[in-house]
């Protein structure tokens, strides 16, 4: 069996464990794993959705640019939750370990572990990209805060017409 085929065959198993692992970083994780409706369970839904997409890109050794959308969704989530920066990004790394585990557990795929270099390198690149996105999200938060404060300040001064002053504030650069 080829590595690519093995990864493809095991994709559900790997992604499931990866999702489970990521959701366990939340204190009350049972509900997040159990509830499948992504509107009732947006953390679970977002994690499941983005990891599934990221994994399918990983096994195809895709360009990092393609990771941006699913990674960005995940980082939008984790950068406003109570994680340190490393905790926010770390679950991405887990897929390396999980993949090795899954392949090692089956005789037919055990020997393919030696060929995982390229796959793992892709994971490394994704982790680095995630860190950039994490910082981008943090900066966005500060910009939004500044925007709120700026509009607030104008309001507290009773002098110039605040609505006129507001017109001068340029949109948040996105």
């Amino acid at each position: 069996m080829k590595l690519e085929e093995a990864l493809h065959n095991n994709r559900y198993k790997i992604v499931d464990r990866w999702v489970q692992y990521t959701l366990e970083t939340y204190k009350a994780s049972q509900f997040f794993t159990r509830e499948k409706d992504s509107f009732a369970n947006p953390i679970g839904g977002t994690v499941r959705d983005s990891l599934r997409k990221i994994f399918s890109l990983l096994i195809k050794n895709q360009e990092t640019a393609n990771y941006k959308e699913p990674l960005s969704r995940l980082m939008h989530l984790r950068s406003v939750q109570e994680f340190t920066p490393s905790q926010a990004v770390a679950p991405l790394n887990a897929v390396k370990h999980i993949t090795r585990d899954v392949l090692a557990a089956d005789k037919a795929t055990k020997l393919l572990i030696g060929e995982l270099y390229d796959f793992e390198f892709s994971v490394d690149l994704a982790v680095l990209a995630a860190f950039d996105l994490y910082v981008e999200c943090r900066e966005k938060i500060y910009k939004i805060r500044v925007e709120e404060i700026r509009s607030g300040k104008e309001l507290l001064t009773d002098g110039a017409c605040p609505s006129k002053a507001l017109k001068n504030i340029t949109d948040i650069k996105r």
Partner: peptide, 19 residues
């Protein structure tokens, strides 16, 4: 791999899961 994964998870979720 399993041992490493546990180490990674320790750096991620140091607090015991409560619920």
């Amino acid at each position: 791999a399993v041992a490493k994964l546990e180490q990674l998870s320790q750096s991620v979720a140091q607090d015991p899961s409560m619920a």
